[in-house]
Design a protein around this nucleic acid. Structure first.
Lengths: 343, 343
DNA sequence: ATGAAAGCGCTAACAG
DNA sequence: CTGTTAGCGCTTTCAT
């Protein structure tokens, strides 16, 4: 039976609740004998101090709220896990809410965070706007945006530089001698995806290659099948392409499969690169060259900032300016790109 | 600025805190005019009622604690996500703690659950024993075990029948004409893995095939590379095998890769089956025949039981007996098995 | 070296 | 129809 309170312990040990409190914390001297008696009662009764009460006394809840589109997504999942374990070490628990890109759900989740008095919010928002997050940001509850930025909100942000990631990947293709480089883009326009495409375009321009809109196609989904279709369609209308960059590993995998079905050999006839370095990218055939979102760095930085904000709130100092950290993805070179130029 | 309390609202609206409370909940009649005034103040001040206080008044925290080895694991991640979203609809939040199979971490997580007064615990325990969980199970905090069972604890359980899953998979191979069937097992002995191997062995015996211990090999890890090595080793010592069953999809993928390197064609020379139906199983070449853990059913059943227990606790009725549900995995037939017998 | 009691935010029983 | 107040579990002054 739970519901053992400090009173029960105090009664059992024959002391006041104050003394029990001081034994637990320990916030003032308690004689050895009394201390032991109290400990015994605690153990005997299976007493677990109610942390929620502390929040009534201005101590914070030691709970952080996190919204995320889906922990099932490999990148997001890793972030959530890393953040959770790091925060746990700092004495905080994480309430995670999956939003599946549903704005309404997102808002409801944030509302419960507010009612549960979370000490901070970590968000991978569904869209580029979120009123509730704007509202919370004005509050003294810290908000930290991860992997996605938000319009009209001034909060700390920790993001990937997808422009640079795709720029590097495309530049790599060019260094390997490719000039006719296709790009499979996502259908829905989001800030970070357009950054990625811009990186592809800029790399071409910067290397004296005129970008051709016809070399870009939109995949109809985020799954490998969409990649197969896109690969088919793109190669059929642009047979001279020697390389295809894709916004996402599963799409790249689909493109490889699709082109193989069409009789192309990868990478001998067509080189392919993905994006995200998902677990299976190492296991495709040929193994996929891609760019890796530095999830671990992002999670660590988010926690570092969080800790900072939490400490600031505790000491009632002036808030320092918002922090914006950007991490470039790392090029992961494997076997899906062929060098078609002499060294 | 947060920290707006019911008092602030009451003062702003010129009413008592009781009235504000009754407007929010709504638990007694409040005249239209007053009600509107209060609502206005609430909106104006951005008041969010403190849910944590309710728990002091015996209302529960509407928070559920979940321990899980790693949400990064595809199956566990799906479970956590499905459980979280379902519980959210029921008005509950989920505190997730990743234990990475660390018993000590698991215990600490459970301790904080107790101090945060979670209304229930959902656990995918790291091992077959967990004292803290035993302790909690004796309490009136419901404990629901998912995907793993625990010795010496009488709690509700929702698990997969891995014996049956592997039995079905192996029987399928036999129906397709295979008699020399290898098995790649995991290294570490855990209850559910031995079930799986037993299913393999039983399917052989029940079909008049004498199990041969030499046909079984232990993979040195859970990643595809371990599968490659195991595949090599197994085929080298048992060249007559026509099929290999693996305890886990990534291992099966590794076996396919490894055997392909050795010059075998899959499934023409050797058939391969995996286990878990991970996302990439559809995308391997050939697409992997495997068994799917019915994650959705498991999550739904876990939530159904949870709801039941929560309601019971509320109504102080007698606890009904513990519920033990088992779901069989579903056979997912794709292209990695060849029929070598006439219909 | 320890106890008594106020008070955190809110609800519900009691008053009017 | 609405207000007053005790009390949930705990911490923390203030007393002793």
């Amino acid at each position: 039976m739970n519901g053992v309170t400090i009173k029960d312990v105090a009664a059992d040990a024959g002391v006041s609740t104050a003394t029990v409190s001081h034994v637990i914390n320990p916030t003032r001297y308690v004689s050895d004998g009394v201390s032991k008696r109290v400990q015994n009662s605690i153990d005997k009764l299976n007493y677990y101090p109610n942390m929620l009460v502390g929040s009534l006394k201005g101590k914070g809840t030691y709970t952080i709220g996190m919204i995320i589109p889906s922990i099932t997504n490999e990148t997001f999942g890793k972030m959530a896990e890393l953040i959770q374990t790091t925060l746990f070490d700092l004495g905080y628990n994480l309430i995670v809410c999956n939003t599946s890109f549903d704005t309404e759900l997102e808002e409801r989740a944030l509302n419960t965070f507010l009612m549960k008095k979370v000490d901070a919010v970590i968000a991978v928002p569904a869209n580029s706007r979120c009123e509730k997050l704007e509202e919370i940001a004005k509050t003294n509850t810290p908000v930290i945006l991860v992997d996605r930025i938000l319009k009209d909100v001034d909060t700390d942000t920790v993001v990937t530089d997808n422009y640079k990631g795709q720029y590097e990947l495309t530049s790599y293709l060019i260094r390997m001698g490719h000039k006719n480089i296709g790009y499979v883009d996502r259908l829905i326009e989001q800030s970070h995806s357009s950054d990625q495409r811009k990186g592809y375009l800029a790399a071409l321009s910067d290397n004296g290659i005129e970008p051709d809109p016809e070399n870009i196609i939109n995949a109809n989904g985020h799954y490998y099948k969409a990649g197969m279709e896109a690969g088919h369609a793109l190669m059929q209308k642009r047979p001279l392409l020697t390389a295809i960059a894709c916004y996402y590993d599963p799409i790249a995998f689909g493109v490889m499969r699709g082109l193989t079905d069409l009789g192309y050999r990868i990478p001998d006839d067509v080189s392919v690169v993905g994006y995200d370095n998902m677990l299976f990218a190492e296991a495709t055939w040929p193994a996929l060259t891609t760019a890796e979102v530095p999830v671990k760095l992002i999670a660590e930085e988010a926690c570092r900032i969080l800790k900072l904000r939490l400490e600031e709130n505790g000491s009632k100092n002036d808030k320092t300016n918002t922090i914006h950290t950007t991490f470039p993805p790392a090029l992961v070179i494997r076997e899906s790109v062929k060098r078609i130029i002499d060294q």
